[in-house]
C-alpha cells in the first residue's frame, strides 16, 4: 500500500545523486582522477564557498577549489560526491530493505510472541485462580453440609438412645415393681402362715409349761381357751 511513496522517496534520493553528478563533471581534472594520496594542507579559504551551498544545493557545485582531487578540504570536494552518493544509496537502500523486510519483522515477531505468551499465561492464571476459588467455595459448602448432616445424625442417635434408655428403664421398673409386689405378697403369705402356726406352738408350749410346773396335764380345751384369750388380748 505504501509502495508508491516509497518509490517516490527513492526517486528523490536518486534525483539528488543525478543533480550532484553534473556538479562534479565540470570541475574534474581528468589527470588526477586516480587514487593518488594527496599531500594535504589545512582547509583553505576556498572551502568556505562550497560549504555554503553543499548541504542544500549540490547543483551549484562549481566551487573555486572544490574541483581539485588533491588539496582542499575533503568533505567539500565534489569530485568524490558521486561515488559517495551512489554507494550511500546502494548501502542505505540495502539496509532499509533488510531492516524492513527481514530484521524488524523478526524482532517484532519475537516481541509479539512474548507478549502473546505473557497474556496467555496471565489469562490461564486468572482461570486457575477462578477455578481454585470455585473449588474453595464448593469445599466450604460441602463442609457446611457435612457438618449439618453430622449434627442431624448425632441428634437422631441421641434421641433414639434416650428413647431406648427410657423404655428400658420403664420395663425394668415395671418388672421390679412386679417382683416387689410378688415379694410383698409372699411375705404377707408367709407372715399369715407363720402367725397361724403361732397358736399351735403357744398351745404346745403352754401345755409343756403347765405339765412341767403342775406336774399333770391340763385339759386341752382349757389350754386352748387360755391361749386364745391371751392372743386376743395381745393382738388388741
Amino acid at each position: 500500500m505504501n509502495k508508491t511513496w516509497k518509490l517516490a522517496a527513492a526517486a528523490a534520493l536518486w534525483g539528488t545523486a543525478v543533480l550532484a553528478v553534473p556538479a562534479t563533471a565540470g570541475s574534474l581534472d581528468p589527470s588526477s582522477v586516480s587514487a593518488r594520496p594527496a599531500p594535504m594542507v589545512v582547509a583553505q579559504a576556498g572551502a568556505a564557498a562550497p560549504a555554503a551551498h553543499a548541504p542544500g544545493a549540490p547543483e551549484a557545485g562549481h566551487g573555486p577549489e572544490g574541483g581539485e582531487s588533491h588539496g582542499g578540504f575533503p568533505p567539500f570536494k565534489p569530485a568524490n560526491y558521486a561515488s559517495q552518493l551512489i554507494w550511500l544509496i546502494v548501502s542505505f537502500g540495502a539496509l532499509y530493505f533488510l531492516m524492513s523486510r527481514v530484521t524488524l519483522p523478526r524482532i517484532g515477531r519475537i516481541l509479539e510472541e512474548r507478549h502473546d505468551r505473557i497474556a496467555k499465561d496471565l489469562e490461564e492464571a486468572r482461570l486457575r485462580q477462578a477455578e481454585s476459588e470455585a473449588a474453595h467455595v464448593a469445599y466450604e459448602k460441602a463442609l457446611t453440609e457435612a457438618r449439618g448432616k453430622a449434627n442431624a445424625i448425632a441428634g437422631e442417635a441421641r434421641n433414639r438412645l434416650t428413647a431406648e434408655t427410657d423404655a428400658n428403664r420403664k420395663a425394668l421398673e415395671a418388672s421390679l415393681n412386679t417382683k416387689l409386689a410378688d415379694a410383698e405378697s409372699r411375705i404377707a403369705a408367709t407372715k399369715t402362715s407363720a402367725l397361724s402356726h403361732v397358736r399351735g406352738i403357744a398351745v404346745d408350749t403352754t401345755n409343756a409349761i403347765v405339765t412341767t410346773l403342775v406336774g399333770a396335764g391340763a385339759p386341752q380345751q382349757d389350754v386352748e381357751a387360755a391361749v386364745d384369750a391371751a392372743l386376743a388380748a395381745k393382738s388388741n
Partner: peptide, 21 residues
Amino acid sequence: GVSVSFTNSAAFMVGIVAVIF
C-alpha cells in the same frame, strides 16, 4: 568525466550495513 569508484567511504558504508544486519 564523473568517476564512480569503490572508496574507503563505500567500504565503510557497506561494512556498517553488514555489521548492523
